[in-house]
Design a binder for these strands. Structure first.
Length: 574
DNA sequence: GAGTTTGAAACT
DNA sequence: CAGTTTCAAACTC
């Protein structure tokens, strides 16, 4: 509408209240929780305090808004809503010299808001993505009803009417902001953590629910009725999965693939994003793509959904299956897909649960002659190791920073990351299969549920037990030394005291780094050979990684809490 | 795309 | 603070 800024490409991305400029200072100052308010908020308040409360041409509704003397009540929170990691990452340097953590963490210092990214169609891994457009009619986009306003961005290309949430109407905006802050000092940040929802009819499993929409379980602060938005609720998992995949069509497609509804692989490309990837994907059989997409998203779901326990079991199965589907001769996954290994909500509802939609005779990965079962297995368990170690190390690090001084132990844990050759090892695993997993193979295999003798996985039950054990140990390790709480919500809260966001970010980053190394190895592998077949392999691998990153970015955008710069770094570093 | 439902925000 | 109204998004058809 009238909101378009002409002043350069950065202009539309600029957040109201000079967020971008001031957040640097805010981040720099935000050393501890309960830090003072961000500068942009101070500015807003001071603007508000000095605002001329004139008769203005404001329509009736705005005129009704009261502007009493500003109270200097500062919300005792860090600005999670804006950039969850901004306030925390800088002051918590990784204790463990993990692989390239600083590379990945540094971009977090750049000022970029979730919304500003959405404004920029060139980001998101090249997939254009529009900012969500409001359609306000009566609020002039100066109430929290307006999503743009509530998120601290100018309306840009919205379908709103009589919009005042623009740079041109800055004075009005700031007045409105002041009014909002007066009523709700935390209105512009940390909202989803400070308030609870009040849902009555939706079971907190629809986007009406703020908690659900923010991808966080309901808490004690909520006053909801019949809440199903809690850890461990199957219904929630199902809803979250749908929510995060952000596409019913995608789910249906994936399910169709699983159910065998797609039929023989065709050379048709699948319409995920025709613009940027068509060239790469056109030769891929459709059903393969669907499956790969499916598993990538499935995997992402577990990567990105905050949960108290980062289950290595849940990570291992989909990842292993993904890699098998993507790279191995199928069907020979180490975990039989479609069976009870998959959570019920992604299992095929009807037909033969073991039929994944690709025919044994039809499906053959381009890499089927290159990769071997053992490589994928080793790689999967290695990722699980990385993730588990990160899960252990980060809380330790936090304890140290918080004054619990168990330095020796932390140093010991750090040692796990000192294998700076992992990257190379990983590539060797691809290029020189015989070298794979030389170190501690026996112990690793045992701990990760592989039968050393025949290279096959242990039974699911055994594996599950082992993984549960590991997770339980992890939780016990990191729980406050008081009581082992049984309530999932309470657990969730105690975990959040240790900074689960950061924990998952770090886990995620490590695992993704490994995954990328692996894929890069494949790309290199294909490139070196130079023939058409291997070039396709290389392309496919590259495509896979792109898809992975793009999917991650898209999901990130959906979850306001989640850090997104990591992903852009992943893509950029590709 | 229109109409309905929903729950937060705004208001009394 | 409770109750009501307004609002815009989510959802359904």
């Amino acid at each position: 509408m009238e909101q378009r800024e002409g002043a350069g490409e950065a202009a539309p991305m600029m957040r109201q209240l000079d967020f971008a400029a001031n957040f640097t200072a805010a981040a720099a100052n935000a050393n501890v929780k309960g830090n003072s308010q961000p500068k942009w908020l101070e500015e807003a308040n001071s603007q508000h305090a000095s605002a001329v409360l004139g008769p203005q041409s404001a329509p009736r509704q705005l005129a009704r808004t009261k502007f009493p003397p500003r109270k200097m009540v500062m919300p005792p929170k860090s600005p999670h809503r804006e950039l969850p990691q901004m306030a925390e990452q800088p002051q918590s340097p990784p204790v463990a010299p993990v692989h390239a953590p600083k590379l990945a963490l540094q971009p977090l210092l750049k000022m970029e808001s979730p919304k500003s990214r959405e404004h920029n169609p060139e980001q998101n891994g090249g997939t254009p993505k529009k900012q969500k457009q409001c359609r306000c009619k009566n609020s002039r986009c100066l109430k929290l009803y307006c999503e743009c306003f509530a998120n601290g961005v100018y309306c840009d290309g919205c379908n709103c009417v009589n919009c005042y949430n623009t740079k041109e109407k800055e004075a009005d905006r700031k007045e409105a902001i002041g009014a909002v802050l007066e009523r709700k000092p935390d209105a512009f940040y940390g909202a989803e953590q400070s308030r609870g929802c009040n849902c009555k009819r939706t079971g907190c499993l629809k986007k009406y629910c703020e908690c659900f929409q923010a991808n966080i379980p309901c808490s004690d602060k909520c006053k909801c009725v019949d809440c199903k938005n809690f850890e461990g609720c199957e219904e929630r998992k199902a809803r979250l999965y749908h929510h995060s995949a952000d596409s019913v069509a995608f789910i249906q497609q994936a399910n169709a693939a699983i159910n065998g509804a797609i039929g023989p692989p065709s050379k048709k490309k699948v319409a995920f994003d025709e613009t940027s990837r068509g060239k790469i994907t056109k030769w891929l059989p459709e059903s393969h793509q669907v499956l790969v997409e499916y598993y990538l998203h499935f995997l992402l779901f577990y990567f990105l959904t905050p949960s108290t326990s980062f289950s290595s079991l849940l990570l291992l199965f989909p990842l292993s299956n993904l890699l098998h589907v993507a790279f191995m001769k199928t069907p020979e996954p180490c975990f039989s897909p479609g069976t009870s290994y998959l959570p019920s909500f992604v299992q095929p509802s009807k037909p033969d649960p073991t039929n994944l939609g690709f025919s044994k005779s039809l499906y053959r990965s381009p890499l089927s002659g290159i990769l071997r079962l053992q490589h994928v297995n080793d790689f999967c368990k290695h990722l699980v190791e990385v993730s588990t170690e990160a899960a252990k190390t980060l809380p330790e690090e936090r304890k140290m920073i918080n004054g619990g001084i168990d330095v020796n132990r932390a140093a010991t844990l750090c040692g796990h990351y000192e294998d700076s050759n992992d990257h190379q090892n990983q590539q060797n695993a691809v290029e020189f299969p015989e070298n794979t997993g030389n170190r501690d193979r026996a112990s690793l295999r045992e701990s990760d549920g592989y039968d050393i003798q025949n290279g096959r996985p242990l039974s699911p039950g055994t594996l599950a037990l082992m993984c549960d054990e590991r997770d339980a140990a992890f939780m016990a390790d990191n729980a406050p030394s008081t009581v082992a709480e049984s309530d999932t919500r309470t657990n969730s809260e105690s975990a959040s005291a240790l900074g689960p966001d950061q924990l998952y970010v770090e886990q995620e980053r490590l695992v993704l780094t490994k995954l990328r190394c692996f894929l890069n190895g494949l790309i290199t592998c294909g490139s070196i050979e130079g023939n058409e077949f291997n070039q396709k392999v290389s392309q496919w691998t590259h495509h896979l990684w792109l898809q992975f990153c793009v999917g991650a970015l898209q999901k990130r955008e959906k979850s306001r809490k989640s850090p997104r710069l990591l992903w852009s770094k992943c893509v950029a570093g590709d």
